[in-house]
Simulated scan of single mutants.
Amino acid sequence: MHIKRTDAGHIAFCQPELKPITPDWFTVDYWQDLGGITGSSKGRYTTWFVDPQPITANTKVQWVLRHYYRGGMMEKLSRDAYLYTGLKRTRAFAELKLLEQLFNEGFAVPKPVAAQVQRSGMHYRGDIIIERVEGAQDLVAQLSKSPLNEHQWQTLGALIAKFHQRGVYHADLNAKNILVSSDSFTLIDFDRGELRKPSPKWQQANLERLLRSFNKEKGKLPKLHFSEQNWQQLLAGYAKS
């Protein structure tokens, strides 16, 4: 990971050819002016899909641009400002570093591109850019249209087990943070994720969080293709790994 200083903070980037990167790359207006916005994903906040071809000449990939926003009670105090306690502890740089390590180790995560931190006094704001997983959709979108088969559920369970065995803690493991493309799955959004000593306690809590998310989505969409049998199939794949 390479780091460069900017007028307002720092930018980290994962490929040497991205050295010309500037803070503009992390703004929606910049990409709109270039005609590079290709879509968006709207949840609590908007994540943007951009085509970097105008500046990288790479026509084979798209990027995902995400700004860091607060949640919960802290959102009422500040929408997107975090207390600065060191560059490596910022959410943007920590997530980029974790993604870079996991991607280089062959884990099913998006390829990291860059992150920026902009300071203002004791606080900072952050953004991250990753590569978009081509042809994939989140698991809720998939299950709203068609079911997964037993092999796919077991494959997903085995994938989660692989992350857990490595000590990868995903702070928000839910159905929308799992992308699916055919029989291939990718975990996304590693904000506040970390490597920790494997332990049945946090691993089980991670799985329970995922189950709650499935049940929550099922409550919102009763026709969602998810059942207790599917969950047991996932657990069977998890246990086999």
Rank of each mutant, 00 (worst) to 15 (best):
S181H: 15
S182Q: 12
D183A: 15
D183C: 08
S184Y: 03
F185W: 07
F185R: 13
T186W: 15
T186G: 06
L187W: 14
L187I: 13
L187K: 09
L187S: 09
L187D: 01
L187Q: 05
D191G: 09
G193L: 13
E194L: 10
E194D: 12
L195S: 01
L195G: 10
R196T: 11
R196M: 07
R196Q: 13
K197I: 12
P198E: 10
S199A: 05
S199M: 12
K201C: 06
W202S: 00
Q203S: 03
Q203P: 05
Q204F: 05
Q204S: 10
A205K: 01
N206L: 04
L207R: 03
R209L: 02
L211Y: 10
R212C: 11
F214E: 10
N215S: 15
E217T: 15
E217M: 04
G219Q: 01
G219P: 01
G219V: 02
G219A: 07
P222D: 06
P222L: 04
K223S: 13
L224W: 06
L224D: 10
L224F: 13
H225T: 14
H225V: 15
S227Y: 11
S227P: 06
E228Y: 07
E228R: 03
Q229F: 14
N230I: 00
N230W: 00
W231N: 06
